[in-house]
Each structure stands twice: as C-alpha cells, then as structure tokens.
Design a protein around this nucleic acid. Sequence first.
DNA 1: ATGGTTTTTACTGCGTC
DNA 2: GACGCGGTAAAAACCAT
Length: 322
Amino acid sequence: MPDTTIRARNRADENEVEDQRDEGESCPECSGNLITDSEHGETVCEDCGLVVEEDNVDRGPEWRAFDAKEKNEKSRVGAPTTNTMHDKGLSTNIDWRDKDAYGNSLGSRQREKMQRLRKWNERFRTRDSKERNLKQALGEIDRMASALGLPENVRETASVIYRRALDEDLLPGRSIEGVSTACVYAAARQAGVPRSLDEIADVSRVEKSEVARTYRYVVRELSLEVKPADPESYVPRFASGLDLSDEAEHRARSLLKTAKEQGVHSGKSPVGLAAAAVYAAALLTNEKTTQAEVSDVADISEVTIRNRYHELLEAEEGTVAL
DNA sequence: ATGGTTTTTACTGCGTC
DNA sequence: GACGCGGTAAAAACCAT
C-alpha cells in the first residue's frame, strides 16, 4: 500500500504546479503537462505534442447552450453511471419474466428468442466479470511482489499463472487474494528467487494455511512444474542481509553443494539449510555473526540453525577425508 | 484421524568479555 | 552480569497414509 500513497502525493504536487486541467498525469515521453482537448476528444502533451489518449467520450452537454433553459434541454440523456456497481451499471439486464414492456405475455417464438438472448447476455457478462477479477488480482500480485522485492519477470509469471487459473475455472470457492498470493509464491519459486511461506503470508491478506492450501491446489490443477526450493537460492539474500563477504557467500554455496551430494538434506526445510550454511560460512571466514542474527533474517529458529550446521560441517569433513 | 518427522519454544549450563 | 553458544524436552506444525 505504500506504493499508492506515494503516487497520490506526486499527483497532488503536479496539480499545484500546473493550472491547466487533467488529473495531474504527465506525458510518458517527455513528462510534460497534459492538456485535454475536448473538441477533438484527445489528450495531448503540452511540450512534445504526443497524443496520449484518443476518442475520449465527451460527457459535456450537447452543442452550445445560450441560457439555462437550453442548457437543460440539450444536456445528454441516460442513466448516470455509478461506481457502486462493478460495471458502473452499464451492462444490460434482461428480465426473467416473459412479458413485454406492457406486461403482456410473449408468444412462444418471442419466448425462445428471449431465452437465447438471456443466455448470451449472461455469457458475455461472465466474461466481463473475469476481466474485472483479473484486474483486481493483477493489482494484488503487483503489490505483493513489490513488497517482497521480487523482480519484474516474477510478476509476469505470476500473472500468467493467475490467468491460467482463471481460464480453468479454479477460482470459484476461493478468494482472489488467496489465489493471487499462491501465484506469487509459485512464480517466485519457479524463477529461482523463492520466498518462504511466512514471508509471503506476511504481505498477503490471507492466512498462511490458506496460501499453502491454495498453492497446492493450483499447482496440482495446472500441473505446474515447480521443483523443491533450492537452498542455494536463499543464500544471496541472507548473506547480503547480514553484510557478509562474497567469500562467505561462496563458502555457503559449496557447503550446500557437498551436503546435497551426501544427501543430508532430504526432508529438511531448505530455508533452514540455507541459514545454517550461511552461518557456518561466516564462522569459517571469521566474520562476525551470531545465530540470533541469522535466525532473524532467515526467519528460522536458532535451534534449527544449530542442528543443520552441525550436519553441514560433518558432511564437509566426510568429503574432505575422502 | 493418525503416526512419524521436523521445527519451534522454553529452559538450562558453560565459557567469555 | 550480559551475551553467545550448545544441548534437551516437550509442544506444535507438517506430511503422508
């Protein structure tokens, strides 16, 4: 949410500078002020002349009005739009009653026709509802991804996964929040920049358990290929969080590699392994870190770090002896 | 639902600065 | 005496069945 508040402030600032009109948006090309030209229905940049938006709907009164009476007569007609309805009240509703506008019953021909129309109207409407759903979800994905510091491509894949979930009708019975969170989680793992479930749940509006459940569900239904998280992929993040040298980071990696060869890590949480490796590496390179600090940045208990890093060092000794 | 495994919590003792 | 570290036991969480 910090994202939007910052934007809102910027907008306000720009509004103070410019006295023209428009919502304070600036030109994507040269960041000059935008002015709306309602005569041509365009939004153009003051400086470079770039047309940002064409075919604006003119919501103003029709023609010119010279006095109040005419102004009333010539204003446009129709129901006002509202934001309290998802489609601003603009979509068509077809009554279920087989009556015409005067309340007379319809003939059988007409009834059949209305049935067909209802069906198709409903089909198009649900398509729209999916669009709206998607829009909201994408916003959420974006929010969470930036809160977690995930790169652009992760957002992309998360969106793609979400779209697929939507196409396969996985949404009914599940919250948009939950599914988008699961998508972010999956995307991050696929991209090799995994975040732990706890981290994910922290920025999401849903419980960790629900995220986990939804994630499993989505992965199964879409048969996504997502390998168990590689402990090594956590190392850089932890290392930089603790201000460790590249040397230590490298040590941590090789520690994990030998551990992998020895098969020490089966069934253990990758995060714990990574944290332990980082701690062990810091020890080996004589850099000051405490278990408490590592436990803090990795969100892993000290006990787990202790247990794991013993195992890691044992595995290392085993290979050295060979 | 259940049992086995892993992680966490909480507590304790030891050595060092 | 506070701190970092190691270990332990019991509780909690997780997973497959």
